[in-house]
Design a protein around this nucleic acid. Sequence first.
DNA 1: CGGTCTATAATTTTT
DNA 2: TTATAGACCG
Length: 672
Amino acid sequence: MGFRLFDLNPEQQEAVRTIDGPLLILAGAGTGKTRVITSRVAYLIAQGVSPEAILAVTFTNKAAKEMRERLAGMIEKSDAKQVVMSTFHALCVRLLRGDIDRLGYKRNFTIYDEGDQMGLIRKIITKVSARDEKLDPHVAKSMISRLKNQGLRERSPGDDQSLMAAVYLRYQEELKTLNAVDFDDLLILAVQLLRENGDVREKWQARFSHIMIDEFQDTNRLQLELVTLLADERRNVAVVGDDDQSIYGWRGADVTNILEFETHFPGPVVVKLEENYRSTRPILETANAVIRNNAMRRAKRLRTSRDQGDPVRLIQMLDDRAEAEFIAGEIHLRQATEHLHWEDFAVLFRTNQQSRLIEQQLRQLKVPYRVVGGKSFFDRREIKDLLAYASVLLNTDDDVSLLRIINTPPRGIGEGTIEAATEASAKAGCSIWKIIQDHEFLSGLSQRARSALGAFVEMMDQAESRMLEPLADQPKVLAEWVESVGYYEEIKRSCKTVEEAQGRETNVRELISGFTQEFEKKDRKGAYGLREFLDDMMLRQEADDEEDEDRGGVTLITMHAAKGLEYPSVYLIGFEEGVLPHSRSKLEGTIDEERRLLYVGITRAMRSLTITWCDSRIKYGSASPCTLSSFAKEFPSEHVVETSKMAIDNAPVSKEEQKGRFDALIAALNAM
DNA sequence: CGGTCTATAATTTTT
DNA sequence: TTATAGACCG
């Protein structure tokens, strides 16, 4: 098996071998963190800890999956399977599916993702607000989230008169009647469940003897509390993280969780991993020099044995277009001359829109690339529709999903009817599903509307009974049902092009076949049905498009999304005041987090790092002047070479001229 | 009901 | 510039 303690460096060994009591592993960028975590799990098992008593929590499904795969290569497959590796949210779902009834919810609760959440908030705003009042649903959403994470839940925010307060209260009420919980609720309710129910708490404490948390710098208050509640008096809690890579403060992550770990778990063993296996010295020293300027941090300094390496380049560009041309051109050139793969290159930026010009230029040179992030598989309408159908089958009180599909495909239930049903359900305080079967309500409708609703109810009833039949082949039922409902025709009808329609149909079929696979795989040893599938889907917002992963090419990615990844050659673009640090961060006083973001960006690079900035940049259509980021003055001059202006001007040029200029540029570069 | 047009706003986004 | 949401019209 692939686990040997002496393959690890002394600090890593100490981290792996400390198995009793609290442990804080400060794992700098590129210091072999995942290796340490998986090795530690293997070590625990080797020491006689039962695999199913080990809980490893990550933030993303991807990280959980990666860890599981690494572990599978280290220890017995059967043991590896027993270890619980889960995201915080999936763990909470597990707790709540078991005992949420203690909190007055039904166990078949529905999970609302951000889209569902927005839909509900929009609905509430229009209902609650007076004519002259306006509230941006996005603002409302983030406010609600913030309030919830501060522990307010049933109470209203400060100003009771405000529209915001009304929306907040109403939102909470409605979620509960919908028997739905949002992502924040998953944490809040799980914490509440454990806090208020000693027997449930003890059950889970007994289940897990050893807990590990990855990316601890990104945990929020609630997540910390959850960990505290899950840990028994032995406090076998090992957290791994790097305060310098805390870049999700704006999402509620609380760096003090890691900075003040000792107050939450007194007397921990603290292990610092400072040996970096990723980057060359110039890159690492640049990173060190930058991050040193942050006030609140645990002192550490990354070391590398890769002493030689090219200096970091800081290059000034005339404008964003020249920047894109330069980068695309250089990647094109270097791939050939240095015998690199396209996959070895990454372009990092602060905001998504910055990728556009780069994309254009890469396309022009026929350089393959992939843009990470962007629109998720799950934001696609057909996927949301299908999941909504499934959701209603499992929880008919889920109004948001019901409204989504009640007339999709069109079946004669118009806006007026829907409006009336919504109102009646609000008045009666029950779900829309119940209302549309209510005789009193139905009697107030036209004959046509009544029969349309009747047909809908009957269809849903039928699907439900087939689906919930014991031993039902649920994926098959789902597939047939989607067919019989006429969903594919609906897709064809609503798409402009055949390709688009085909793409959407494929998405739906893929989703169903994914369900089939899971159903058949897990059916034998445990219950895996529509409920579990839906939970998985709701908690897996991030695209699990394997195709995308496999597709090669230059990576275009935000610095946020790049955390945890590494590339031989990195281009960090738009290094300008107002972009990085972002102008908004000054207002919000989060310059330190911007600096950490830069640190994350720099430390993605293994061998080559190029940072570019522009004199001028097109913003919202018109050019505006830019200045070099103030962070640049923190760079160590002995490791960073500054190059100024590339001689390319911005005037519109013909294809031939462009080519000529490009060649000149390449020549100039070669001369450097 | 559904498509088109216009007004508006514009970091980052693990679940 | 562009994406998107809501208004408005056929």
